[in-house]
């Protein structure tokens, strides 16, 4: 474990807790894409298949349970909670799941480290996580109203993967045989997708104006 990865995990943890807190306290999911949340639930499900088979550390297991629990409870809130669901904007959140899931699945079947079910699922989860934010970014472009919590959520989500890139660089230089080019490429693509959001987020923060994404 290195500081970059710990900071990345904590940033990721805070991002999901910020979102859960928002939904739970104000009982609203305005501006949140259910599609993206469902994709994240799928990312964690396919990535943590080894949750009950390989024990790595208490930290690893606890964090996996938190990420699984939070992503599924966010989906539950938006789908099932009698108050929250009313604020879900299904007419605007229209990104088709299979436009993202199918290409990632095909890619995982073609490019992976080892052709086993768990390995292909793990690779699929990496590709999926890289693009899972797209429905959320599309929704933000459409609704154009980005409340603070949603802006912070997307920012923290992007920041966590950027910190992981520093972790991979660090591990590449400090650990022999640490070669994960699939992880690195997926992680870089993921962070680049946030780049324009980061730009507008910093602009709004610097000029102290409300965050507006160009149409």
């Amino acid at each position: 474990m290195n500081i970059f990865r710990l900071a990345g995990d904590m940033t990721h943890l805070v991002s999901v807790l910020v979102l859960l807190l928002k939904i739970h306290t104000i009982k609203s999911c305005a501006g949140i894409s259910l599609k993206t949340q469902e994709l994240y639930a799928l990312v964690f499900t396919t990535r943590y298949l080894d949750l009950f088979t390989d024990y790595i550390s208490l930290y690893n297991t606890v964090m996996k349970l938190i990420f699984l629990g939070s992503s599924f409870s966010i989906v539950w809130y938006i789908r099932r909670h009698k108050i929250v669901r009313r604020s879900y904007d299904k007419d605007q959140d229209t990104f088709r799941h299979y436009f993202i899931v199918l290409p990632c699945l095909v890619l995982a079947l073609l490019i992976h480290h080892k052709f086993t079910f768990k390995e292909v699922m793990w690779t699929f989860s990496l590709y999926l996580e890289a693009v899972a934010i797209l429905p959320q970014l599309v929704l933000l472009q459409r609704t154009r109203n980005i409340d603070n919590l949603t802006g912070q959520y997307v920012f923290l989500l992007g920041a966590y993967r950027a910190l992981y890139i520093l972790n991979w660089i660090y591990r590449h230089y400090t650990e022999p045989h640490y070669v994960h080019w699939i992880t690195w490429i997926a992680g870089i693509v993921q962070t680049l997708l946030y780049a324009d959001f980061f730009y507008y987020y910093f602009q709004s923060w610097k000029n102290n104006v409300k965050l507006q994404l160009p149409a």
Binding site: H12, D54, S57, K64, F67, H177, H180, W181, T183
Partner: peptide
């Protein structure tokens, strides 16, 4: 191919 990536990361 390279070693199977250890899955110690989240």
């Amino acid at each position: 191919g390279d070693a199977i990536p250890d899955k110690d990361e989240l």
